[in-house]
Amino acid sequence: MKSRWIVNLVLLILVVAIATFLYFRPMPKEEGPKTYEISSMKLADFNKVSIEFPAKAPVVFEKIDGNWRITKPFDARADLSSVQRILSVVAATTTEKFTLGDPSQFGLDQPKLKLKLNDEEFLFGTINPVSGEQYVQYKDSVYLVQTTYSESAGIQIEEMMDKSPFKPGEKPTGFDFSRLEQWEESRLQVDLADGKWTTSVANAKLTQNEMNEWFDEYWKHMAVTSVERYTPDRRATYPSLEVKLEGGAKVHFDKMQESPEIILGRPDEGIKYHMPPDSGFTMLNPPVTLAK
Rank of each mutant, 00 (worst) to 15 (best):
W197N: 06
L144N: 00
D119K: 13
E184F: 06
Q134K: 03
S131E: 07
V89S: 00
D102H: 07
D79H: 06
A78P: 00
Y149I: 03
P165H: 09
L108H: 06
T199F: 06
K112T: 06
A92C: 03
S131T: 15
F122K: 00
D109V: 06
E185I: 10
Q137S: 03
G125A: 07
S88G: 00
F175T: 03
K196W: 03
S152Q: 11
I86C: 01
D75Y: 12
K116P: 00
P103M: 13
L123A: 04
L117D: 03
W197I: 12
S186C: 08
D191C: 04
T147F: 01
L87A: 02
D191K: 15
D194V: 11
G195D: 13
S186Y: 11
K116Q: 15
V145N: 02
K139E: 09
N118E: 10
Y143V: 08
N128G: 07
I86A: 04
K171R: 14
T126P: 00
R85M: 08
S152K: 06
W197P: 05
S178A: 15
Q146G: 10
R85T: 02
D176S: 10
F177E: 03
A153E: 04
V130C: 04
W197E: 12
I127A: 02
T173V: 15
M161E: 04
E120Y: 05
K139A: 07
S104F: 01
G169F: 07
